[in-house]
């Protein structure tokens, strides 16, 4: 199970990557493996204001429907619309082409409060 050291994580299995003033968000390798084949991804509109822990979107696999939560408070500034036709990217490349949204955080310092890779590995090792 891949847990890149350069990313931050939530206990709900989202990852976050700081990129300039933005934070890119997706689901972890552990999450995509648990979901199985992803067949639909529901994403928010650009411009949507989100709270930390609020529903950011949903991911449907052949076996379940799961909500994705925002790691941080802020505003959605980009969504990966390519997932509309290619939701399987969440399985194939969860940390790359399978990214879901970019958020402009209300408080950039909040990023540092997320789990680091070691903390997330510990969580998923249980």
């Amino acid at each position: 199970m891949q847990v890149p050291d350069t990313l931050r994580y939530t206990s709900d299995h989202e990852w976050a990557r700081a990129d300039g003033g933005r934070v890119r968000v997706g689901i972890t390798d552990y999450a995509q493996d648990a979901l199985g084949d992803v067949v639909f991804v529901g994403l928010p509109e650009v411009g949507t204001a989100v709270e930390a822990g609020a529903v950011l979107g949903e991911v449907e696999s052949t076996k379940s429907v799961s909500e994705i939560y925002s790691p941080l408070a802020g505003t959605v500034v980009a969504v990966n619309s390519a997932l509309g036709d290619a939701p399987e990217q969440l399985n194939a490349d969860p940390y790359g082409e399978g990214w879901m949204v970019e958020i402009e955080p209300a408080d950039p310092a909040a990023f540092e409060g997320l789990l680091d890779a070691a903390g997330y590995r510990e969580l998923t090792a249980e």
């Binding site: 709900d12 299995h13 989202e14 689901i27 999450a31 979901l35 949903e58 991911v59 696999s61 076996k63 379940s64 429907v65 799961s66 909500e67 994705i68 939560y69």
Partner: peptide
């Protein structure tokens, strides 16, 4: 990520 609908292990 949290299942909002039960997966195959609990659905039926």
């Amino acid at each position: 990520m949290t299942p909002t609908e039960p997966d195959l292990s609990t659905a039926a």
